[in-house]
Design a protein around this nucleic acid. Structure first.
Lengths: 230, 230
DNA sequence: CCGAGTCTTTACGCAATTTTTACGCGTTGA
DNA sequence: TCAACGCGTAAAAATTGCGTAAAGACTCGG
């Protein structure tokens, strides 16, 4: 989960300071001391964010940003001693997420990094289970069986996704009843049997030899998933 | 294409300057001179960006941001005379996209607005949906059905486009009510039913087997789109 | 100040979902 | 062997939520 950050800056001092600050915040850091190295590092390490100094020895920082934007939309925070409007406008319009002028406060800089990562990495958790036959898309709230979209009632969907959250693990009856029907329904196990029955019908599961929802007698249920992706 | 921007600032001078600069760049501008007015304006005008001054007469700017983030993810650029790290870190971590210290360069400020608008409107949000029968153009704010332009009331349009921003995903009733009717209306689900009813009529959708707006009972609604083009 | 358009309130028929009730089947243990 | 128990299924009854219409309240521009 630790974000990876590429620093492109020719000053070893700045790199050192940033590296220490970033690592202590749990980021993975990759350093590059010129534009060419920087672009190579972005290709190689696929970072979640890039810190780019405009004053590089081999090529103009604006040029680096321009080239980068030709094939990547990774968020870039530009760093510069130059504080002229023109520079800032140019960098921001070229696709930089933010522009920070040296000298800067480390705390503020880290906060700007957090903001960039947060805002950019929004579509990050498309949780999905798919084994070719059954596909559960938690983000879209959609379930397919053999390519067919299936409709579920709220309770049915809740039970199925609760099981899907911990594939291949037994979820106890009490747990399911408490979490879905609310406290005070721990004894109503027949609700569960009915819902599971409907689920198996819609999933094309035979209760004698169920492919997906296995019964653990007296305990609870388990969703069996072979090729579970993350 | 014209983005709408809400300015929340108590100083008429600053508002005036921003208004002139923003309008000359083609933005639609709405002004508010305190926090309460500002929040109301965001609910009412559904802006694409918010400019928020931290020094407001009625409530703390941080508090405004906090409340706003409870129900909206519209990008916010914070404006302040205070330049302390703590302030900046707090605002950025609370969900601000950017933090600009007064006095500031108008050119730079406009560039930061362009950057925020550009970066925020990127994630998986197609500006235009078209399946041959229904065409939703979010940029032009136009909707066609079978080649005919359709008129919608503001609420109808807001619901439709909110659904269109995440095609094929369920948007919960609470989400729709909070984002469009504002906080405090989470329970008024019948508003939604009425608006959806009107939308289906205008879209030529039968509620029994809806082609476009599908009901997820007890949860929310989903805009079904097969051939979503760019 | 008025009227058109919009939003809110109110009301009611209908459909879907949940809960209740009932019954058959296999396993287990006395 | 058979009674008790947990499970699965199928129906009903009850409850909840949905869709629509229509009337009153509100807003805004002229």
């Amino acid at each position: 989960m630790n974000a990876r950050i590429v620093i492109i800056d020719d000053e070893a001092q700045i790199r050192r300071m940033l590296r220490i600050a970033l690592k202590s915040d749990g980021y993975e850091v990759v350093e590059a001391e010129n534009g060419e190295q920087g672009l190579a590092a972005v290709v190689r390490h696929q970072p979640d964010l890039v810190i780019l100094d405009l004053g590089l020895p081999d090529m103009d920082g604006h040029h680096v940003l321009e080239e980068l934007r030709g094939w990547s939309r990774v968020p870039v925070i530009v760093l510069s001693v130059r504080s002229g409007d023109r520079e800032k406008v140019r960098a921001l319009d070229a696709g930089a997420q933010d522009y920070v002028t040296k000298p800067f406060s480390v705390e503020e800089f880290l906060a700007r990094i957090r903001a960039s990562l947060r805002d950019y990495n929004k579509p990050d958790a498309p949780k999905r289970l798919d084994d070719g036959h059954l596909c559960i898309d938690l983000a879209k709230r959609q379930v397919c069986v053999a390519g067919r979209l299936i409709d579920f009632t709220p309770k049915e969907y809740a039970v199925l996704t609760r099981l899907a959250q911990s594939p291949n693990c037994v979820i106890t009856q009490t747990q399911l009843l408490q979490e879905i029907w609310g406290p005070g329904h721990e004894q109503d196990t027949h609700y569960l049997r009915i819902v599971v029955s409907h689920l198996r019908q819609k999933l094309g599961d035979e209760p004698a030899e169920p492919r997906y929802i296995r019964t653990e007698a007296g305990v609870g249920y388990r969703l069996v998933f072979r090729e579970a992706s993350q």
